[in-house]
Design a protein around this nucleic acid. Structure first.
Length: 562
RNA sequence: CGGGGCGUAGCGUAGCUCGGUUCAACGCACGUGCUUUGGGAGCACGAGAUCGCCGGUUCGAAUCCGGCCGCCCCGACCA
């Protein structure tokens, strides 16, 4: 490809809106352009990278028996009503009516369509298992897009769906996907960590997310470098040492003016925050007011709490809702209150003689104890893991790191197949719902993550496997030696013939401009043809990653392009 | 949705406090010509902006006021 013909323009200055390296460089080097918030065009260079990533994923999906198909972006609302998600999913799903007034949606994901296909095609256990996948546009009207291609609203995703006769089959499919993911990320140059993850609104029993460590990552990971424990903070278990149990002392009211926060309360009473009980309130989707109790030095993990409540999503309760239940915000506790769903963290439950709210302004209670003073509905781990906590596996201190999710795998189970009636007739002559798994990789996000992991101050450094072109040929000083253009043209022509076309900077630009652009664009090798290189014996080959330069003969370079 | 910031030429910005013949400017990029050619070249000429939009105040608005829209960052949110 001749650079003089390529639809691209590189920018000398960083666009003001770009902060992350990948966003900055992809814009400056002309791989992408923004159309609106979270909506991007891939320019020809970007599209080539996307296609190379896509092809690698395709190969690995095929290698584990995946079958590629293509499902629509526009869905009738009906199948989303069948699964219950038409109402369960909020405004992030775009909805509209077609000309006939029928409700339609833009696909955020394709479980419903897969289940619909399964109920149409699958009759017998003999047709299972099967793994389906496609590359398709998703639209999710995110409340906030960010970080260039890291979090966008419209994007292409590889989503795969495994379909098995039972949980054991799902385990096999899940493991196959896990292995394929490891190979995919290895091949495209991303060092990832697979962490246990929350199943969230997808439902299901188990999930992993493949994470790229990155300071700008939106997820917090809890990692143990001793035993390899790795979990998203949303699900990371907390196993802190149990406190010493004291004898229960009598409850006692104490005046504590102006102590609506744990920090103020602990300071006022001169006790550590760990000797207090913190009450946080949420409304569950089913209308229950949830009281979460953690020790004063802990924070509530909302994902864990939501799973403990099992009443759908949670939102913070409003003050009037808390008062309506008989409690006083800032001085609240479940003591003497019976109308809320009380979830107590294990550590708080094991702690004795805590200070808790008295449910009147300016007063707390000393020596509050579980069971004696209030009745829990559930006792479970709802605290958020902290840096230095003992690893739930081996007890070594864990570390916290930010990560970007580059892929995920979910064991869905039968949620969608039951809802849509996708069943097979088993060997036992009985109808069973098909057991599904779901496996996603965002193409654009992966492209951005590769840049995050592979760049320097000069520009992008594409790994060979995903580079838009294997080499960037720069012709310089053509007017002083006719052989320069001759040789460069011939090399470029040769690369077309071999099917491994290189990028050829044939522009009438100064050497500085050409070399700077070559480094910005990031092909793995830069081939320089100039009177100087010819005098030295041929073509200068620069390794973009290491900066190493070597003179190679023209023949040698030509052969390397084959 | 809360908090903060920003919208002036393709990109980056100045001007805005203090309204008016340096108010529409500067650098880069762009076009033409000549020179230049191994690290973002030089000279000359040139094209390109109804200063995000609408309304108001005023003799006069990029500048002041109100409303709206868009974009970015933090948080909430995130199959």
């Amino acid at each position: 490809m001749r650079l003089s013909q390529l639809f691209v323009r590189t920018l000398r200055d960083d666009p003001a809106e770009a902060e992350m390296p990948s966003h900055r460089l992809l814009l400056r080097a002309g791989y992408v352009r923004q159309l609106g918030s979270g909506i991007y065009s891939l320019l020809p260079l970007g599209q080539r990278v996307a296609q190379r990533i896509t092809q690698i994923i395709r190969e690995e999906m095929d290698a584990i028996g995946g079958q590629e198909l293509l499902m629509p972006v526009v869905h009738p609302a009906d199948i989303w009503r069948e699964s219950g998600r038409y109402d369960a999913v909020g405004p992030e799903m775009a909805r509209f009516k077609d000309r006939g007034g029928r409700d339609m949606v833009l696909a955020m994901t394709h479980e419903e369509v897969v289940a619909d296909l399964l109920r149409d095609v699958i009759r017998s256990y003999r047709q299972l298992p099967v793994q389906l996948y496609h590359f398709q546009t998703k639209f999710r009207d995110e409340p906030r897009s960010r970080g260039g291609l890291i979090r966008v609203r419209e994007f292409t995703m590889k989503d795969a769906y495994s379909c098995d006769i039972d949980a054991a089959g799902l385990d096999v499919s899940y493991q196959a996907q896990y292995g394929a993911y490891a190979r995919i990320f290895e091949r495209i140059g991303l060092q990832t960590i697979a962490v246990s993850a929350d199943v969230g609104m997808m439902g299901g029993t188990e999930a992993h997310e493949f994470m790229l460590l990155n300071p700008a990552g939106e997820d917090t990971l809890v990692l143990c470098d001793q035993c390899g424990y790795a979990a998203n903070q949303q699900v990371a278990k907390v196993r802190r040492p149990k406190p010493l149990v004291e004898g229960l002392r009598d409850i006692e009211e104490v005046e504590t003016p102006g102590t609506a926060t744990i920090a103020d309360l602990a300071a006022f009473l001169g006790i550590p925050a760990s000797e207090t009980a913190k009450a946080i309130f949420y409304m569950a989707e089913d209308g229950r007011l949830v009281t979460a109790i953690v020790r004063g030095d802990d924070e509530v993990n909302e994902a864990k709490l939501a799973n403990a409540v099992a009443g759908g999503g949670l939102r913070p309760a409003r003050e009037e809702e808390i008062r309506a239940a008989g409690m006083e915000p800032g001085y609240a506790s479940p003591v003497g209150v019976h109308s809320t769903f009380v979830v107590v963290d294990e550590l708080a439950a094991a702690s004795t003689n805590l200070v808790a709210g008295a449910n009147k302004p300016g007063y707390h209670l000393r020596n509050v104890n579980l069971d004696r003073d209030y009745v829990p509905d559930r006792i479970t781990d709802i605290a958020i893991a902290r840096e230095g906590d003992p690893c739930p596996n081996c007890g070594s201190p864990v570390i916290l790191r930010n990560g970007i999710e580059v892929g995920n795998i979910f064991k869905l189970g039968t949620k969608y197949t039951e809802a849509l009636g996708a069943t097979y007739l088993g060997e036992d002559g009985v109808e069973h719902p098909i057991v599904m798994g779901s496996y996603g990789i965002g193409i654009g996000r992966n492209m951005a993550c590769i840049v995050e992991a592979h760049h320097d101050e000069k520009g992008i450094i594409w790994p060979e496997a995903v580079a838009p072109y294997a080499a960037h040929l720069v012709a310089m000083g053509a007017n002083r030696d006719a052989r320069v253009t001759e040789i460069a043209d011939a090399l470029h022509a040769h690369s077309i013939v071999t099917g491994n076309e290189i990028l050829y900077d044939d522009r009438d630009e100064s050497p500085g401009v050409k070399l700077t652009d070559a480094e910005l664009l990031g092909m793995p090798r830069i081939l320089t043809v100039s009177p100087r290189s010819l005098a030295a014996g041929g073509i200068e080959v620069t390794d973009r990653a290491t900066g190493e330069r070597a003179i190679r003969s023209v023949d040698e370079v030509r052969d390397s392009l084959g």
